[in-house]
């Protein structure tokens, strides 16, 4: 890291440790304070319940003027998350605001798990299944959660 770490990133990191959000954790890498290992629990009552999903999060140089880059590492069956873990979420794109934080973004992602939106799909195949046969899609999502996101 050549540029000094902005105060905001230090503060956010401190607060993520000191006031953790239940079901969410974000740990910066030792050698890169802009790169975080993230864990998000599947929201209770959703088909991702009891799943523990790993993500990676990176704060670009111009953060907070532009959104963090974030991606699922754990496989997940979700219409707004594709095979590579890329997430279709408005606050990560057009609707980013510097008043948002890592914490709020992760909460938004957790909420997205609780409310899949097949009308704005990133993963067409999953979204199609979600619209045409929702019970089957939910079964698959549960199955994938059990297979790939097992708490351990």
């Amino acid at each position: 890291m050549t540029a000094p770490l902005p105060k905001r990133i230090i503060k956010e990191t401190e607060r993520l440790q000191s006031e953790p959000v239940p079901g969410i954790s974000a740990q910066p890498h030792d050698d890169n304070a802009r790169y975080f290992d993230v864990m998000v629990e599947g929201p209770g009552g959703s088909c991702y319940e009891d799943g523990e999903f790993k993500l990676e999060l990176f704060l670009p140089d111009d953060y907070p003027m532009c959104p963090p880059r974030i991606r699922f590492l754990t496989r997940i069956y979700h219409p707004n998350i594709d095979r590579l873990g890329r997430i279709c979420l408005d606050v990560l794109k057009n609707n980013w605001s510097p008043a948002l934080q890592i914490r709020t973004i992760l909460l938004s992602i957790q909420a997205l798990l609780g409310a899949p939106n097949p009308e704005d799909p990133l993963n067409e195949a999953v979204a199609k299944q979600w619209k045409e046969n929702q019970p089957e899609a939910i079964r698959t999502a549960r199955e994938w959660t059990r297979l790939y996101a097992k708490k351990g």
Partner: peptide, 10 residues
Amino acid sequence: MMEENQTGHA
């Protein structure tokens, strides 16, 4: 492309 277009419609 997605990253470059991240805030394209902002």
